[in-house]
Simulated assay, not measured.
Amino acid sequence: MSEGRQIKMITRQHPLEKILENRIAIIDGAMGTTIRTYDMKEADIRGERFKDAKKDLLNNGDLFSLTQPVMIGDIHRRFLEAGADIIETNTFGATSIAQSEFFVDDPREHGGRKDPEFYQKIIDNRMLSDLAWEINEQSSRQCREWADRVANQTGRQRFVAGAIGPLTVSLSNSPDADDPGFRVVTFDQVKTAYAEQVRALIAGGSDLLLVETIFDSLNAKAALVAIREVFDEDGLTAQGRELPIMISAAVGRGGETMISAQTVEAFWNAVEHANPLSVGLNCSLGPDLMYPFLEELSGKSSAAISAYPNAGLPNPLSPTGFDFQPEDMARYLGDFARGSLINIAGGCCGNTPEHIAAIAKALEGQAPRSLRRHTEVAA
């Protein structure tokens, strides 16, 4: 370069990457499952702010970050005290697209349909945009506060993962059997919604970005493109402040992503370009069914491997709604560790702080999967 400073590529490890080389890190459990143990009612999620909402909101768990922040903070605290190194923001559905399900009339109820024209109005809706930003930023700040508080108490650094869910729409499939080429939403619309979420998660203090529970790889691709564009447009690349990316897919009994039907190897090939800190599997399957697919991914990927399965099969008679107890999850994830498959372990649906505590205890002292990845950043 004739003028200006030279840019030299150096190897700079993120603090979490150093941990992953030396031990198995623990990620938290299921926010939704744990919220249900607090016996919240419709009035609790509405509060004064949303008291006049026309639709039921109780299943919109992300709103609790705004209306019941003390409860959400208590959940974060419990997961951290159970041994979690990584806690997730309460933002699984915190995009304008997902929030529209609770605040906008469904045109199908009036003879219409959801299509790109409908979703463009959603993207342009200032109320939904502002709400999505607020949920993401506030949830990230709540996580940050508790992660730092427990880290200071214990002398062990904790990390905040900005949770980016799969959305309520698919880019890969048509909902119309008579029009297989039809899509309800466009790639650019999904990317715009994700970019808004990413910026708010960063503003709130997230350490990592977690694209999770991926059932449609094209949706995930839109999220990854959005992340890349936010990094570039906001000048994060030049400042060396890019957040590490974690990616986790949901697969069915055959080992394929639920809608795009990619095998775990094909899925890895589709996301490898993002240079993720970790890639893994979560949700959908219990740990008893996940092992062979996790083994395949571990053999193909150069990234760290994460696994946070459901607590077995759904069971409405169980207190958590799922079959496996803490000791069951501990035993199965211990098998993952003994098979040298994982660097990050935790639980998805059905996993409470008690499950995470049992998993953390079972994996203590277990060697992580060999990790040879290093991140290059501009110096």
Score class of each variant (00 low, 15 high):
residue 349 C to E: 02
residue 260 S to Y: 10
residue 96 S to N: 09
residue 363 L to N: 06
residue 251 V to H: 03
residue 181 G to E: 12
residue 3 E to I: 09
residue 324 F to W: 13
residue 207 D to C: 00
residue 379 A to E: 14
residue 182 F to D: 09
residue 289 L to M: 15
residue 19 I to F: 09
residue 15 P to L: 00
residue 123 I to G: 03
residue 145 E to H: 14
residue 354 E to S: 03
residue 136 N to I: 06
residue 335 D to K: 14
residue 138 Q to R: 15
residue 237 T to K: 14
residue 272 E to K: 15
residue 83 G to A: 01
residue 199 R to E: 09
residue 367 A to L: 12
residue 119 Y to C: 02
residue 200 A to I: 06
residue 12 R to E: 14
residue 299 G to P: 10
residue 32 G to M: 07
residue 375 T to L: 12
residue 340 S to E: 15
residue 154 T to K: 14
residue 302 S to Y: 07
residue 15 P to N: 01
residue 77 R to L: 12
residue 356 I to C: 09
residue 143 C to H: 03
residue 8 K to V: 10
residue 124 D to V: 02
residue 350 G to D: 10
residue 79 F to K: 03
residue 363 L to K: 07
residue 378 A to N: 11
residue 66 L to C: 02
residue 187 F to M: 12
residue 81 E to M: 13
residue 103 F to M: 14
residue 64 F to I: 12
residue 265 E to G: 06
residue 354 E to Y: 09
residue 75 I to K: 06
residue 183 R to I: 01
residue 69 P to V: 00
residue 152 N to I: 00
residue 133 W to A: 00
residue 165 G to P: 08
residue 181 G to N: 13
residue 130 D to I: 04
residue 360 A to D: 04
residue 93 G to V: 02
residue 373 R to V: 02
residue 362 A to P: 11
residue 372 R to D: 13
residue 4 G to E: 04
residue 79 F to M: 10
residue 258 M to I: 14
residue 102 F to L: 08
residue 97 I to T: 04
residue 306 S to H: 05
residue 112 G to N: 10
residue 185 V to S: 05
residue 19 I to M: 15
residue 124 D to K: 14
residue 194 Y to G: 05
residue 175 P to W: 06
residue 152 N to P: 01
residue 316 P to F: 00
residue 33 T to G: 04
residue 3 E to C: 02
residue 319 P to I: 04
residue 235 G to A: 01
residue 279 V to D: 08
residue 227 I to K: 08
residue 224 L to H: 04
residue 261 A to C: 01
residue 365 G to C: 03
residue 154 T to Q: 09
residue 153 Q to I: 00
residue 312 G to K: 08
residue 366 Q to A: 15
residue 361 K to G: 00
residue 44 D to H: 10
residue 361 K to F: 00
residue 170 S to H: 07
residue 5 R to C: 05
residue 295 E to D: 10
residue 290 M to K: 11
residue 320 T to Y: 10
residue 282 N to Q: 07
residue 331 R to G: 00
residue 48 E to G: 13
residue 58 L to A: 02
residue 374 H to S: 04
residue 55 K to D: 02
